[in-house]
Design a protein around this nucleic acid. Structure first.
Length: 676
RNA sequence: GCGCCCGUAGCUCAGUCCGGAUAGAGCGUUAGCCUCCGGAGCUAAAGGUCGCGCGUUCGAAUCGCGCCGGGCGCACCA
């Protein structure tokens, strides 16, 4: 609705400038003034015209104010400050429209594939993986809210070195050499001779993977394990490959469960092994050769490799050695090569498709109990690519019009190469619509690492050198990091304690485990979302565990307060549904109106968040709204207000806030507790 | 060396795309507020050479150039 007013106002300003001043304006800026008392929309156009017209900005602004014909919804134009042309909206009319509910969003054409999470299936997830999944999930929710059809893919690198390394640990360090023995480890959640691990198989792999890393360092000859296992996995139909397959399934299941408890669901798990089995690379390879995009390097250090030529590409200008190897001289394919094939498939550009089957996560491998996962997520069908024939009822996947790859900033170069691969094949449009959603990593402060060492053991102790750095990267290989489920547990503990401390008081009475969970998850998601995507999150326990101020629970609390008002009214038998006709045009003072105006601007914020991929703007917008509402709540009581007209206005605002804030928390994936 | 990102209050961050009104939050500190829809809240105070310099402009945290500090990337790893 605001969008429409902005558009007609832009035209009206242009028309006034043309007719009254004979000036044509390219861009009409309409911004929010610093205070609402100055107006609802401010136009600084007079400053731009001042020079060419040789007049004072204020004089120009007042001529425009006199000449402009105000579109519907705009009450007044006024000159403010040094020459701003400010507009005041019809407050009552807009509130009435908002109260009537949002118009349903119309579907937009073009399927979008969002790829996120993509954790190597060889160890438990850490909080860096959470940032990826939460950003991806909010992108998905926002795109769907805007009317797009979205498919969520979580890619499994099931044939890579990381999986091979943990399998090496099982086979060579733990002597788990049969499928049956591996199954027992997963089911019993313990390695031979150890007690059962309370957090399950993925946690156990976390430690085992770190141990393999140490073994490689201490006894370099053991590095041969990796190649031996990679070859066995590639050859297939042997016990090592079967062990690897169940490891991947179990760990991927635990990732699905961990993300599931945060409300994150997936449609498809494409597997690297299927890209190989289905000859996607061979097909893509043919296409690349035919297009002349790649060549076999005859000499030099890349002799014998198939290379994507990037020397002539603008994006790679200035690089010493821009060409990228896709096929190694030993004939194996690099990750980037496979990624090009995968990306082509996502756009439906490969004359080939996967086969599919249902993926039923094995919850027994995870730290998460099934009941912690919201029903909608638990029941959402997950498919994966299949080694066997296509299952009946498999939906169509891929064939996207646009693709977002959510992946941290360190992968910018390979992501550029993938895009360049599409371009080299002549798929310029697809290359343009192939977006790397890049974001900065979550790192550990030395202080957080010290806390980890105190909480979870000395293996988290940093070296003296790392202690001096502002932050250190988390590392699966070193086993250094805050595991996702550990952080969720800490949040749950704190949340339960808070619930316990107030469960007997007033309106919070009756709070329970479900509320505690909502609060923990809300705090976590907001913590990861509130900072801009280009900022490194230097992780700090105190900050992550804070429930006051600029946090998820603050947002939730504002919404629970709004709900409490309506519940109280219902209990007292007071009518609380305000119809538009009961609302007058006057009396909309600034405090009240500001909340409505904010609520009305959510669609603009969402649209812009997707455009810029700056999803933090949604979080900030939510926080601002919650803040305004809390001020309003404090100063403008509803139940005690004797004047019916005043009470109705306040009720209308509370209702609008409740509705818009719920929708906004839905976009952020922050659940709302019933009480708190 | 080349490329990208970050530098704003004691700390963590908005604001930079598209220049505009006294540079805003949260945490922390200090002082207040529950006979009133719940205090996970509210009110207020203190706290800023917007890393530095030059330039463009009526006007620069925002644009340009040059520095300084920190991080990341530039594999026959992923």
């Amino acid at each position: 609705m605001l969008e429409g007013i902005r558009a007609s106002l832009t035209e009206a300003v242009r028309a006034a400038a043309r007719e009254r001043l004979g000036a044509s304006i390219e861009r009409v800026v309409l911004e929010r003034p610093p205070q609402i008392a100055l107006g609802d929309l401010a136009c600084p156009v007079a400053f731009d015209l001042a020079k060419s017209l040789r007049k004072a900005p204020r004089a120009i602004a007042s001529e425009l104010a006199g000449a402009i014909s105000l579109p519907a919804g705009v009450r007044e134009a006024r000159v403010e400050g040094a020459g701003y042309l400010n507009f005041f909206l019809e407050r009552g009319a807009i509130v009435r429209t908002l109260l009537g509910g949002a118009a349903p969003t119309s579907p937009r054409p073009g399927k979008i594939v969002v790829e996120h999470t993509n954790i190597n299936p060889n160890k438990a997830a850490h909080i860096g993986h959470l940032r990826n999944a939460v950003l991806g999930d909010v992108l998905v929710r926002t795109l769907r809210h805007l009317g797009f059809s979205v498919e969520v893919q979580n890619y499994l690198d099931d044939t890579g070195v990381q999986v091979a390394d943990v399998v090496a640990g099982l086979i060579h360090l733990q002597e788990i050499t049969t499928l049956a023995a591996a199954e027992t480890v997963i089911r019993e959640r313990r390695l031979p001779g150890d007690p059962a691990h309370p957090k399950g198989f993925a946690y156990l792999c976390w430690d085992l993977y770190a141990e393999v890393g140490r073994t490689y360092a201490d006894r370099p000859e053991t590095k041969a394990w990796r190649d031996e296992i990679l070859h066995a996995i590639e050859a297939g139909d042997n016990e090592t490959a079967r062990i690897a397959a169940v490891v991947v399934d179990a760990v991927a299941s635990s990732h699905v469960a961990t993300m599931g408890r945060l409300g994150i669901a997936y449609d498809l798990l494409p597997r690297e092994s299927d890209i190989l089995h289905k000859q996607f690379w061979a097909t893509a390879f043919q296409l690349l050769k035919q297009a002349g995009a790649i060549h076999l390097e005859p000499e030099g250090k890349h002799a014998g490799c198939w290379v994507l030529r990037l020397t002539d590409s603008e994006e790679f200008a200035g690089m010493e050695e821009p060409d990228k190897i896709l096929v190694r001289s030993n004939g194996t394919i690099t990750y980037t090569g496979k990624d090009i094939a995968y990306q082509l498939w996502k756009f439906g550009l490969l004359p080939a498709d996967f086969d599919y089957e249902r993926f039923d996560p094995r919850w027994d491998s995870s730290a998460v109990r099934a009941e912690e996962i919201p029903a909608a997520v638990r029941e959402h069908p997950i498919w994966r690519t299949s080694h066997a024939a296509n299952a009946a009822g498999a939906p169509e996947f891929g064939r996207a019009a646009r693709v977002f790859n959510v992946i941290d900033v360190r992968q910018s170069y390979p992501q550029k190469v993938v895009r360049e691969g599409l371009r080299a094949l002549g798929y310029t449009a697809e290359a343009e619509r192939s977006v790397h959603f890049s974001y900065e990593i979550v790192a550990l402060t030395p202080r957080a690492a010290r806390e980890l060492a105190e909480r979870f053991g000395e293996e988290y102790r940093l070296s003296a050198e790392d202690e001096k750095k502002p932050f250190v990267e988390m590392s699966g290989r070193k086993g250094l990091g805050v595991k996702a489920d550990d952080l969720v547990e800490l949040l749950l503990e704190k949340s339960r304690a808070e619930v316990e401390s107030r469960r007997t008081e007033g309106a919070a009475a009756g709070m329970g485990e479900a509320d505690a969970r909502s609060i923990a998850i809300g705090a976590l998601r907001y913590f990861l979302l509130k900072v801009g995507r280009n900022k490194v999150i230097a992780f700090d326990f105190d900050e992550a565990l804070n429930f006051e101020g600029d946090t998820g629970p603050y947002l939730q609390y504002s919404l629970v307060r709004a709900a409490n008002i309506f519940r109280k009214l219902e209990e007292k038998g007071i009518a609380h549904e305000v119809s538009g006709s009961a609302l007058e045009d006057s009396g909309w003072e600034d405090d009240l109106w500001a909340i409505a105006l904010d609520a009305a601007s959510t669609p603009d914020v969402a649209e812009r968040a997707v455009e810029t991929l700056e999803l933090a703007s949604l979080a900030r917008h939510a926080f601002g709204m919650a803040q305004s509402f809390n001020h309003f709540y404090h100063r403008q009581p509803i139940l005690q207000e004797p004047d019916a007209a005043v009470r109705n206005r306040r009720l209308a605002i509370a209702r609008i806030f409740q509705r818009e804030m719920s929708a906004l928390l839905g976009l952020l994936g922050i659940p709302c507790p019933g009480r708190m």
